[in-house]
């Protein structure tokens, strides 16, 4: 299903963090959200997975206003992998993934055989099936991150919201996760810090600064040396990837005198 953020505004403690955000992602596409620290990327996502109610505007999934749906209905539509996910209890990996079925079971009850198979497949897709009986507190950061993706997949959403999903992941699993995202028929909204990965996987990229969209379009339209300079304050070059033609960013590290090394 397609997702539209329609003049979305989100406040935290009376301060407007995200203002007038209008973005859309066609069904099955990957929309990357990039921007410097504090630009409102995470807050915008929280308005989508219903952690923070919008102060203005709306989030549309297909023809439905997400914030007007019952909570469990919204959670069957949108799943999220958030940055805040520490638990103090030592659930097993299989138990955490099974919690993805919660919105489908409003009044408790056991998982059906089909649901257990679904959870199993979700774990296999992100390469954590072998960890099923492990306690969550014994996992590495990258393993936990993949478990959370498996839980989101087990939720069977039509929209997947990912807040820095490649955090903690080693290179192989970063690429594995991104190719899974690109190949899936889910509509994906992902905040990404690695601009090269964003360029490689996103159909469209939106750039946020100070709570507003400053650029949006296909990777080659958005990722330019000028944007790096104005939005990120970074000196860099953009070259096409020799095989895929996607934009690749090369940075130069300024030395203390500010001259290029």
């Amino acid at each position: 299903m397609d997702v539209r953020l329609d003049r979305l505004g989100v406040d935290i403690g009376g301060t407007a963090i995200v203002r007038d955000l209008t973005l859309s992602a066609p069904s099955g596409s990957v929309l990357g959200i990039i921007g410097p620290n504090g630009s409102g990327k995470t807050t915008a996502l929280r308005g989508v997975y219903r952690a923070l109610p919008p102060s203005s505007g709306a989030v549309w999934v297909g023809d439905r206003d997400l914030w007007r749906l019952p909570r469990h209905e919204a959670a069957r539509t949108v799943a999220a992998v958030t940055q805040q996910h520490r638990t103090h209890l030592d659930f097993t990996v299989a138990e955490i993934v099974a919690m993805g079925r919660h919105p489908h079971h409003r009044h408790g009850g056991r998982l059906s055989e089909a649901e257990r198979r679904l959870c199993r497949e979700a774990m296999e897709r992100v390469d954590v099936a072998h960890l099923a009986d492990r306690g969550a507190l014994t996992l590495s950061g990258g393993e936990m991150q993949r478990v959370l993706v498996a839980r989101a997949l087990a939720q069977q959403p039509s929209v997947l919201v990912l807040d820095e999903p490649t955090n903690h992941l080693d290179l192989r699993h970063q690429l594995g996760l991104l190719s899974l995202i690109a190949a899936s028929d889910l509509t994906v909204l992902a905040v990404l810090h690695d601009l090269n990965l964003a360029a490689a996987v996103c159909d469209r990229i939106a750039v946020l600064a100070e709570g507003r969209v400053v650029a949006v379009g296909e990777p080659h339209e958005v990722l330019t040396a000028e944007l790096l300079a104005t939005v990120f304050g970074v000196d860099g070059e953009v070259v096409p990837h020799p095989r895929t033609g996607r934009p690749q960013l090369l940075y130069s590290i300024p030395d203390t005198e500010g001259t290029r090394t």
């Binding site: 929280r46 997975y49 219903r50 952690a51 909570r71 469990h72 209905e73 919204a74 959670a75 069957r76 949108v78 799943a79 999220a80 958030t82 805040q84 996910h85 520490r86 638990t87 103090h88 209890l89 659930f91 138990e95 955490i96 919690m99 993805g100 919660h102 919105p103 079971h105 009044h107 408790g108 939720q155 919201v161």
Partner: peptide, 23 residues
């Protein structure tokens, strides 16, 4: 005991609980 699964989800934290449809 009837709300055991809600307790499971709550102990994952507010953000996650919200994304799983728990108020």
């Amino acid at each position: 005991a009837r709300k055991a699964r809600v307790l499971d989800v709550l102990s994952l934290g507010e953000e996650t609980a919200s994304s799983l449809g728990v108020d």
